[in-house]
Each structure stands twice: as C-alpha cells, then as structure tokens.
Nucleic acid binder design. Structure first.
Lengths: 302, 302
DNA sequence: ACATACTGTATGTATTTTCTATACAATGGG
DNA sequence: CCCATTGTATAGAAAATACATACAGTATGT
C-alpha cells in the first residue's frame, strides 16, 4: 500500500487538464508553473502512472489521466461544497441551538428572548432545558448555559450579559408587619423563606447609601431550593424573602408583592452565559448572545 | 474567498470522529496524537468552525462537525476509489493500446503478436495503425511505435526488441541470371528494385566472413517506397532487391523467392519499440512489450 | 480519598514539503 | 533564423509537518 495520498495535488492536475497548459494552470491557481509542474510530477510519482503527456508545446492527458480527471473533478466539487456549507453555517445562523437556563431567569427572560430569536432566524430551532442544576455542557451537547449569580467553575468560557438586583419582598398580606420597618435589624425576628439553592441563603448584606453594609442573619421559616418555589411561598404568606428583580419587579408593579425596605439595597448579581470550551462559536450561538446582550427595555425597579 | 483548502486534513478529522479519540486516530493513521491534534486544529482554524468538542476525557463532534463528517467520508471514499482504479490499471493491463508499425513488420510479426496479446489480456483492445511514415506519437495519442532499421530521432524513449537480417532476393524466374554469381560486384549491372523508404536505397555493404565489406552501388530499375511493394515488384520479376528476413524467409522456404549470394550478408538491422516521452508506461504497453521481447521460435534463415 | 494511567494539548526541534526565482532546452511562429 | 513561449530543472527560502517530550486535567481502580 502506498504511504499516503496527497489530495491537494488533485487541484493542480485538474487545472492543467482543464487549461491544457501548465502555464495557464499556474495562473488560475495564482502560483508559478514550476510549482504546478512539480506537484503534478509528484502526483504521477505517487501513483506510478503518467497522467499527462507533455511536449514543449502541448499537454494532454493519457487515457488513465482522463479517467482519473473525471473522478478528480467530482471529488473537488464535493469538497468545495462541503466547505461552502460549513462557511454558510458559520455565517448564517441555522440549525439547532441547545440552551440550558435556570427556571426563574429562563422563564422570565430567556423564553421571551428565544421567541424573538426564532422569529428573527427562522432557520434556527431552539431547545431550552430549564434546570437549576449545573449540567455538563459537553456531555449534554449544549451550546450555552445561562447562569445566575456568581461563577464558580472557571474552566468554561463565560460572558456577563446582564446583572440583577436582589429585592426584599413580602406578600401584601404582610404589609402591616413590614411597612413600618426602617432597619434590616428588625428582619431577624420575622419569618423568612430561604432559597437553599444559594450558597448563603440566610446571610444578607444590606446597604444604605454610602454607609457600610449591615450584615443580617435571618431565620428560615421555610427552605426551598428553587427561586420560583420561594416566590410561591412568599405569595402564600410564608414570610419575607429575597427575589431577583426580574421576578419581583413585575409583581411589585402589579401589587402582588410589596417591596420591603425599599431604601436598602442588596448585592448586585450577574447573569452569565457560559459556553463549552470550543474554539469557534457556532453562528447561531453568537447570534443569540448578541440578542441577549442588546439592552432590554425592561426597567423593573425605578 | 478563503486562501486554499487543504484536503489532506480531512483524513485526520474523520479518523478522530470514527475512533472518538485523538489517540486512537493517531494509531490508525500511524502517527502521533500531537500531529492529529494539530491537523484538526488547523482544519478548524481554516474553516472557522469548531468541529469537535474535546474534554480531556472525551471527544465528540458538534452539529456542524457531524454534517461535515458525512461529506468527508464520501469524499475520501471517492478519492480512494480513484487512486485504486489507477493502481489497478497500472497493474492489470486493460484499456485501449494504440500501436503503429510499418506495414511489413506489422503484418508479418506484430499482427500475430497482437492476436496472442489480446488472447492473454481480454480486457485489452489494440488499435494497430500500419504506416511507413513516422507518425508523431504524442499528437496521435499512440502508446508505442514499432520502427524498423536505425533510429534517427533520439528524443524518444526506445528499446530494441528484435533484429533482422537483410536478404538479397530475386524471383525464381531470375534464377538463371543470379544463381551463378559469386561476388556482389556482379550485381551492379542487374536490375534492382529500390526501396525508397530507406535512407540509402541503392547503397549496400556486402560482407563475406571476416573480410572487409564490399560497398556496392546498384542500379534502380524500379523505386517503390514500401517494402511490401518492393516484394511485389520482386515477385513480378522486376529485379533483385533486399528484403528483411521476416518477409523473405518464409517465401524462400516455400520457393517463391530465391536467396541470392547466400554466402554474403548485409548489415543487421534492429527492430525498436518507441514510446512517447512518458515517465510511467501504462501497464498494457508494458505487457505488450514484454510479449514482443519474448524470443519467438521463428528461425527464418538457416 | 488517592495514586495511577490515560486523555488532549503545548512546546521546541528536526525533517520534509512547498514556494520562489531563476536558468535552461525544446519548439513553433513570424 | 530570430524570438517568444512552452515545460522542466535547480537551488535556496519559507512553510508545513512530524517527532519527542512535558504538562494539566480527569476518569478509574483500589
């Protein structure tokens, strides 16, 4: 068996056959005739067959050369098509985009974005997986994950696409107990719905203007490991809790929740999009991130 | 438009997809994993798309990579077929073999050889062009020419496959005039049929044993430019002439011609097969030359 | 839990291949 | 017969590839 086949030489050979000239072939390939001559010579050497008969004035293919040429052009045509298809895919978003996001942010922010995205790029399909677990992007073949809070795993490529405020809320039925509060200290005796998905569900730093933040340790009446569950508990009157603005703001606006201690603020969190460690991002992923990064016209608080 | 496509990288990529491992792919290609890694990385760089997602423990193709892989395997399969077809053609004689030969030698020697050749290689067809002219092998797309005598054109590749004696003959009806001759000198007054296809149709050097040859200049009663025409003239009694042994011997054996001055010999000529200046000879041409070179069991003179 | 073996990648160097820039022999046209 | 043009040859430069090794990360086996 021959060592290895060098497919790159096929292009030189076909160019010579088609132009019936080494010089013209060199021009078409924008190289020199010496290179074309050498490449074709090596091709013939590799396959041990004379493909072209050259005189100083004329070039034409042998019988074997003609048969080989016929195969070459289909091979080259197919290769070109394959590369073109990739290039098109790289430029024009298409195909299936697999996303994972947390329940809360996914439902309230990502789903509307996806709707806008598929309207913009009809060639794209989106598969959204809502889960608060940290799924392995590679083994699940996921193009991007939307993660809320603070990044822990640093091996993956991430990009901050948004930030969120955390808001202390209560149900309107608790208004009598919370509307007169003027310091976070007073919260320590009130029932609190803990979000056990957080790293420190009961420890909160409240800031007021330029003053130093006040660290408060709350008392968990209920612990739930999903933000939307916390919301339900709060709405059911189980206690106060902290919710991200993208959840709380609409409900505060509609009066379904009340903003407790509105002059005090909690740390700002980040929304990150995380990618598998791929060198080149597919076009649909790039396009979706662009859409995510465009400033939404939402203005939850204030 | 991208610079240039390097088709050689496709083999590396497909090997990784099929083995699901860079290491295994390297083994299959009998190279190192570092090379495979680099080649695939460059392929991805060239096309600007991530084809494979690698973790330290696992490799699998992206959506784009899978689509590209599907195209790659057909391309590689076709290329392999194309090269295999060439190799087979180089090994197993097949296809059309174009030969040109002189009328005389062609008819008396080549045609029987061709019959044997096509019987031996049923996949071969032979196109024999009988002509005493020196045809241009390249422009006529001829695989080999059988030439008789002495080579003049040295740019072509040639190989001596046979030699022939030249025999002074006459028709039996001239026997009274020639049977008593004992020296070539006596020929100068006899009618001679000149073969004007030769370079010096009337000038002949007769040798006798170890003596110096005797140069004789003959008188052309008739000039004909084809050996078979000369034969016909001789048989018609137009005069003496010199014929190659492969023509004369059978006729002498059957008594249709007589050998004049049988103790004197004329220069030995060569039979040459001439090829176009191709580096690699097609298999059917090689096989035919092999057949030509096998010593025929003919023994015309003596 | 921890050592281990194995993964893919990175790096530096050697080797091969390809390119560039000539010069050259051969050939056909004017 | 001169001259332009053909394909090839050659040497040196540049690039690509191969090789050997080292490394970081992670499954696996105990």
């Amino acid at each position: 068996m021959a060592k290895h086949i060098n497919l790159n030489r096929l292009a030189y050979f076909t160019a010579v056959v088609e132009t019936r000239s080494f010089t013209a072939a060199a021009q078409r390939l924008s190289t020199t005739k010496a290179v074309v001559s050498q490449q074709v010579a090596r091709l013939e050497e590799e396959i041990g067959t004379t493909l072209l008969i050259r005189t100083t004035r004329n070039v034409h293919a042998t019988e074997a050369g003609l048969a080989f040429y016929a195969r070459c052009i289909t091979i080259l045509r197919e290769a070109e098509d394959a590369f073109d298809a990739l290039a098109e895919r790289a430029v024009k978003p298409s195909g299936l985009l697999r996303i994972t996001a947390t329940f809360d942010y996914g439902i309230s922010v990502i789903v509307p974005k996806i709707a806008a995205f598929t309207a913009l790029y009809p060639a794209c399909e989106v598969d959204l997986s809502l889960s608060d677990e940290r799924i392995d992007l590679v083994s699940s073949n996921i193009d991007m994950a939307i993660r809320v809070g603070w990044l822990s795993d640093s091996t993956l490529q991430a990009r901050r696409i948004d930030s969120f405020r955390q808001i202390l809320v209560a149900s309107p039925q608790m208004a009598p107990a919370v509307s007169h509060l003027d310091s976070p200290r007073a919260l320590e005796t009130l029932p609190f719905v803990a979000n056990s998905a957080l790293r420190h569900p009961l420890h909160w730093n409240f800031s007021h203007g330029e003053d130093d933040p006040i660290a408060v340790r709350l008392r968990a009446a209920v612990s739930i490991d999903a933000t939307l569950g916390v919301l339900a508990a709060v709405q059911a009157g189980a206690g106060l809790s902290v919710l991200p603005d993208y959840i709380a703001a609409p409900l505060i606006g509609s009066g379904e929740l009340i903003h407790v201690l509105p002059d005090w603020s909690l740390p700002i969190g980040g929304i990150f999009v995380v990618f598998p460690a791929a060198r080149y991002r597919p076009a649909h992923a790039r396009a979706f991130v662009d859409l995510l990064s465009t400033p939404a016209k939402r203005c939850y608080c204030r």
